[in-house]
Simulated assay, not measured.
Amino acid sequence: MAIEQGIWRIDGVESAAPQRLSTAKLDDENQLEALIVQDVSIINADWLLVGRQVRTSFDKRIDLLALDANGSVIIIELKRDKTPRDVVAQAIDYASWVDALDDAQLVDCYLGFAEKHGLPESSLDVAFESKFGIPLADVTLNDSHQMVIVASELDASTERIITYLNDRHGVGINAVFFSAFIDGDKRYLSRAWMIDPQETQQITSGRGAREPWNGEFYVSFGEGERRNWEDARRYGFISAGGGSWYSNTLSMLAEGDRVWVNIPKTGYVGVGVVMGERKRLDEFLVEGKSLLEHETISDYNHLENQPDEKAEYFVPVRWVHTVPVIHACSETGFFGNQNSVCKPTTPKWRHTIGRLQQLWALE
């Protein structure tokens, strides 16, 4: 199904009809690539660019390479003058090469990219921690990857192929469409995703065995200045924020879902049942009162009035079992992930739940 984008100017006068802006053309797709390099948020604010025109071992060039906070590699390929089917096939071909990249190759890729573009962070370790607030040593680089096709439009057949690869084979491939508009001497760029990026993020193509998702959610609860586990235990919530990459995945949860909570670098601390949808701090109530009106260990006042993309979001949870941080469960073989919420499809997840049920004497 073709995606049509439009922008209307509204001047704030009730009697004035909305004025649709005329479409414009970018000079070429090289310009779009350059814009993404200047500001990666044009395509996704939660990615870190690590390479441009990256040469593969079979003498082809990947337009752009990026990382997310999990260390997953994102292959970004602009359609340019290729047919829609050709660009999809090319992205999959590039993915076969990316799959074999080791840490040193990705580090070298970023070093060349940073030097060429005069970036302030001269090493991948520094750039990664600056971007995500997580040491690079705490993630597994290139344990998974996804592909993104950048185009103005795709034919219906190619869209069906992308949907099929996502839905039936767990191949993380997506398409993002850009359109340009003109309003007097000003030009604007709009963006629309074919598939919600959260969905692609959840099914990124990873190494190792996969199995059907068991219906239970993993939650990463990052203790720190923004949240405290004892507050979460006492008042019944999980939370995430500080960036849309962290908070958006909370929207995956619905009332009745079961969640297993892990504190990164510490261990699993609880399992519970979701009791409602995610809400901003200023909308989240505990026993009819704002969380700010309760006695808490963390001071949540500094999280008020933040813009939506940086805000802290809360999901109410009825706890089935929790333990304090000092009794967190962590063993070799347990599943871990930087996503605030995810649907694991690795055998590790089945093992983790089974082991926690034993340790916590749960049915």
Rank of each mutant, 00 (worst) to 15 (best):
S41Q: 06
S41F: 04
I42R: 11
I43H: 06
N44T: 05
W47R: 11
L49V: 07
Q53D: 13
V54F: 02
R55N: 12
T56C: 04
T56P: 03
S57E: 14
S57A: 15
S57N: 15
R61E: 14
R61Q: 13
I62F: 03
I62Y: 02
D63I: 08
D63P: 10
A66I: 13
L67A: 06
L67M: 09
D68M: 11
N70L: 05
N70M: 09
G71M: 10
G71W: 03
I75M: 09
I76L: 12
I76W: 09
I76T: 10
E77R: 08
E77N: 07
L78I: 07
K79A: 08
K79G: 03
K82D: 12
P84T: 05
R85M: 11
D86K: 14
V87M: 06
V87S: 07
V88F: 11
A89F: 01
A91Q: 12
A91R: 07
Y94H: 14
Y94M: 03
A95W: 07
A95G: 15
V98N: 01
D99W: 14
A100N: 13
L101A: 14
D102A: 05
A104I: 03
A104P: 00
A104S: 12
A104Y: 04
V107R: 15
V107P: 00
D108I: 03
C109R: 02
C109W: 04
Y110N: 02
Y110R: 02
Y110L: 07
L111A: 15
L111I: 12
F113H: 03
F113C: 06
A114D: 00
E115C: 07
E115T: 05
K116T: 15
K116G: 15
K116P: 00
H117Y: 14
H117L: 10
G118V: 00
P120F: 00
E121D: 11
S122F: 01
S123N: 10
D125Q: 02
D125H: 15
D125G: 05
A127T: 01
K131Q: 07
G133R: 00
